[in-house]
Computed example of a mutant assay.
Amino acid sequence: MKPILMCFVLLFSLFGCKNAEDEGETSNFSEMKLESPPPPEPQADAIALVQPKQAKSEEATIEIQHKIVKTGNLRFETKDIESTYNQVVKNAKELGGSIQNDNSGKDNETVYRNLVVRIPSQNFDLFIQNISKGVSYFDTKQISAEDVTAQYIDIDTRLNAKKALENRYLDLLKKANKVSEILEIEAQLSAIREEIEAKQGQLNYLKKQISLSTITIEFYKPIAQESGATESYGTKIWNAIKSGFNSFSGFFIALISIWPFLILFGFLSYFFYNRFLKNK
């Protein structure tokens, strides 16, 4: 009886150990399956590929806009001074410009008109194109475009530096307790503000020159065309006859204006003739 009981105990213990090993293996597997793997570290090559693109995008966003000052100088002959003037004024108004100066005059050979026009820079080329219509040739045509980007950046940088310095002095003024310190800081602030106003004026003037282009236009008409240099031969003869008649009329009018002297001269001549010459 005892041997049989011992066999059952051995078999039971063997089956129990096997089940325990199986459960341990399953539990370890489940724990390994629940643990999420760590994220892969970025490779150096990938980082190297991404960084240049970011640098390029940053460089692309920092683009300097060029500041250009455009000027023009035109001089040409016209057949009608008033018509050309109206054309210039019309084109200037349509393109958002204005007439700044208007001078007219006459010399020995021509009648002329001189205009200074301010036109928005984006319409500069179109205005020149419109004014050039109908002009056979230009005595003078000068177009210039000056790049003032460096000057603009320099003034703007100095202005911002002065404003930052002003803010630092304002902070010091708030913390100052002594009257001497307050007076010294206010003196420095006064000098800095004068420099700020000067730089701001320079920057405003430069901005105006950039936004509005200046064009000087002079058009003229020869006086010879007005005086009849192309008259026919018959017209010249008729003008000579009229000129001779006008000269004779002038001489006759001059004689009439001295009639008292003529009467006196006639009376004296008659007296001398009867007194001296008649007896001889």
Rank of each mutant, 00 (worst) to 15 (best):
G228N: 09
I192E: 00
Q188D: 13
E218S: 09
L206N: 04
L189Y: 05
G234V: 06
T214M: 03
Q200N: 11
I215G: 09
Q202S: 06
E186N: 02
P222I: 07
K178S: 15
E186Y: 00
T230A: 03
E194N: 07
G201Y: 05
Y169C: 08
A198I: 03
V179C: 10
N167L: 11
I155E: 12
V179D: 03
S213M: 02
D171K: 11
I196N: 06
A224Y: 06
L170Y: 11
S211L: 13
K236I: 06
Q200A: 02
E231K: 10
I210L: 08
K207N: 08
K174H: 01
T157Y: 14
E186D: 09
A176I: 03
S227K: 10
Q225M: 02
I241S: 07
K236E: 10
I217L: 00
Y220L: 05
A191E: 10
R158K: 14
S190P: 11
E184M: 09
W238H: 08
Q202V: 10
S243T: 15
K236H: 08
S232T: 08
I237S: 05
Q200D: 03
E186F: 07
I223H: 02
K207F: 05
L173V: 12
Q188L: 13
L165E: 08
A224D: 03
S232C: 07
A229K: 12
Y233V: 05
N160T: 13
E194F: 04
T214Y: 01
E166T: 08
I237V: 12
L189M: 07
I215N: 09
N160G: 07
R193V: 01
N160L: 02
K221F: 06
I155D: 08
S232I: 14
E194V: 15
E231I: 07
K207D: 11
I210H: 09
R193T: 10
I217A: 01
R158S: 15
F219C: 06
R158G: 03
Y220E: 02
I223F: 00
L203G: 00
E184V: 01
D156A: 13
K175V: 15
I223C: 02
G201N: 04
N204W: 04
N204G: 07
W238Q: 15
I210Q: 02
K175G: 02
K208P: 01
R168H: 12
K174Y: 00
G201M: 05
L170H: 07
G228D: 03
Q202G: 08
A229P: 07
K199G: 03
L159C: 02
K208V: 02
N239K: 10
Q200H: 09
I196T: 00
I196P: 03
L170M: 12
Y169K: 06
K174E: 02
K199D: 08
A187I: 00
I237F: 08
A164N: 01
N239M: 09
Q209L: 08
A240M: 14
E186I: 07
Y205S: 13
K178Q: 11
S190K: 03
S213H: 01
Y169E: 14
R158A: 02
F219D: 00
K175E: 04
K163A: 15
E166F: 12
I196D: 00
D154F: 12
D171G: 11
I153N: 12
A187E: 10
